[in-house]
Amino acid sequence: SPEVQIAILTEQINNLNEHLRVHKKDHHSRRGLLKMVGKRRRLLAYLRNKDVARYREIVEKLG
Rank of each mutant, 00 (worst) to 15 (best):
R40C: 06
Q5N: 04
R40Y: 05
I13H: 01
E57A: 13
K50N: 12
V52N: 11
V22S: 11
L16F: 05
R54N: 03
R54M: 10
I6P: 00
H23M: 04
K24D: 07
A53K: 14
E60S: 11
K50H: 14
L62F: 06
E11L: 11
M36P: 00
R40H: 02
R30A: 07
Q12M: 15
I58R: 00
L43Y: 02
L16S: 01
E18R: 08
R56Y: 13
E57S: 06
E60T: 06
L47F: 02
I13M: 02
N15F: 14
R31N: 07
N14R: 09
R30Q: 06
K50P: 01
I13A: 00
H23N: 11
L16G: 01
E57C: 06
D26A: 03
I8T: 08
R21S: 08
L16I: 07
E60V: 09
K61A: 11
P2H: 07
G38A: 14
V4C: 14
T10F: 04
R41D: 12
N49D: 10
K39W: 08
T10M: 06
Q5P: 02
M36V: 06
Y46E: 15
K35F: 09
D51H: 04
A7Q: 09
E3H: 03
K24T: 12
K61W: 15
I58D: 00
A45P: 15
A7P: 02
K39E: 15
Q5W: 10
L44M: 05
H19T: 04
A53H: 12
S29M: 14
R41E: 08
E11N: 07
R54E: 04
T10S: 06
Q5K: 07
S29Y: 06
D51Q: 02
M36Y: 06
D51E: 04
V37T: 04
L43M: 05
N17W: 14
H23A: 05
K39R: 12
H28V: 14
H28G: 09
V59E: 02
S29K: 08
D51C: 05
E3C: 06
P2G: 03
N49P: 01
R56V: 08
I13S: 00
R21G: 03
R31K: 12
K24I: 09
G32I: 15
R31D: 09
L20P: 01
V4M: 12
A7M: 15
L43F: 03
R48G: 02
A7D: 05
Y55L: 02
N14I: 10
H28S: 14
N14E: 07
L44P: 00
G32T: 15
R42N: 05
K25G: 14
D26P: 03
D26Q: 03
R54V: 08
I58K: 00
L47P: 00
G32D: 15
E3F: 05
V59W: 06
A7N: 06
N15L: 13
L33G: 00
D51I: 04
N14C: 09
N17P: 01
V59R: 03
L9F: 03
R31M: 12
K24R: 10
N14S: 05
R42L: 10
E60N: 09
G63P: 06
T10W: 04
H27M: 10
V52Q: 11
K35P: 01
R41K: 09
D26V: 03
L47Q: 00
V37Q: 07
L47C: 02
Y55S: 01
S1H: 07
V52R: 10
L16E: 02
H19Y: 14
D51A: 03
K39P: 00
G63C: 15
V22T: 14
S29T: 08
L34F: 10
L34Y: 11
I8C: 10
Y55K: 00
L34N: 07
R54K: 14
N14A: 07
N49H: 10
L43H: 01
I6K: 00
E11A: 09
E18Q: 09
A45C: 13
E3A: 06
H27S: 06
E3P: 03
L34W: 13
R54D: 04
R56T: 10
N14P: 01
N15Q: 13
Q5G: 03
K39F: 08
Q12V: 07
R21K: 13
E11Y: 08
L62E: 01
E3Q: 03
I6R: 00
L47W: 02
I8Y: 14
K39I: 14
E18Y: 06
L34G: 04
L47T: 00
R48D: 01
A53V: 10
K61I: 11
H23D: 05
N49W: 13
E57G: 03
E18C: 09
E18F: 06
N15K: 15
E3W: 07
Y55E: 02
V52E: 15
L44E: 00
R21W: 04
L34T: 05
E3T: 04
K24Q: 11
L33A: 01
E11S: 08
Q5R: 05
S29F: 08
N49G: 08
K61Y: 10
K39C: 09
A53P: 05
R21C: 07
E11H: 08
A45T: 10
R48N: 02
L20Y: 04
V4I: 11
L16A: 04
Y46D: 14
E18P: 01
L34A: 10
R56P: 03
T10L: 05
R40M: 09
P2I: 15
K35W: 13
G32Y: 15
V22H: 12
I13P: 00
L44D: 00
I58P: 00
L44A: 01
V37A: 04
